[in-house]
Design a protein around this nucleic acid. Structure first.
Lengths: 123, 123
DNA sequence: GCTTGAGCTGGAGTGCACTCCAGCTCGTAA
DNA sequence: TTACGAGCTGGAGTGCACTCCAGCTCAAGC
């Protein structure tokens, strides 16, 4: 896959793809005859996963660490599992906070509706 | 309340409190005889709310906008309600993505457990 | 064979959200 | 009465995560 196709498929900009490669989040892909990156299809899934880690607040440094462990293969299964378990707890915590805030938004919206009603009534 | 007390109570640093005042997230509190900030107790609740907006990903600019509307009183109820409703949708969306990622973490942890088991067995 | 467009590199620049610092004042305790 | 600690101001600095740029190469179509 050409870099433009990967960009299209993942929603990451071409610059971001090269940046991710530079910092070690994406393996340097093979190059074609003209020296251009030729990504394997699998990179799409990997980027999607990185994106999920990102969207749930895993810091860059941790994602880089995970990518590094992944490159090292079977010897790092345990450490990778532990990272995911730790991140799972972070997500659970955020989830609870989000749910609380969502409930608060609901209450506040109702309060504002009442206040707007009052404003309208004592014109 | 002294700035150190507010810092203590909210978990924001003293620098951040002054920074929030500068950008308009917190109303400039009255000063004591010596020119030091003397915050009303209510600021704690307001900061807690700001914190929730923050933790659920509302950008600074939007929080500033909300704070500004709040200062303008009853005339801005509708706009504030609309902001909170919009943010509620953002939260709902994030919540779904988080739940998906949580489920993925669960699956991946299981996969790693299986792989670790296999590694151990064919010593 | 020349133009066009995609891709390349190394490095500089950006925006957000703080965080730190120098040098000052003020109130309290020894 | 002086030493100390808390707080003050304006402005510079930081870290993260990109984003942009100049100047280059290469392949393909006219």
């Amino acid at each position: 896959m050409k870099i433009s196709e990967v960009s299209e498929a993942t929603g990451l900009s071409i610059d971001t793809l090269r940046f991710y490669e530079k910092i070690g989040l994406i393996d340097p892909p093979p190059r074609d005859a003209g020296g251009r990156r030729d990504y394997p299809e699998e990179v799409i899934g990997w980027i999607g996963f990185l994106d999920q880690l990102n969207a749930t607040g895993m810091p860059q440094a941790d994602r880089i660490r995970y990518a590094e462990l992944r490159r090292q293969g079977a010897a790092t299964y345990t450490e990778r599992r532990e990272m995911l378990q730790a991140h799972r707890e972070v997500i659970r915590h955020k989830l609870r906070k989000m749910q609380d805030t969502l409930a608060l938004m609901d209450r506040k919206v109702e309060i504002y509706e009442t206040l707007e009603e009052e404003e309208r009534s004592h014109v």
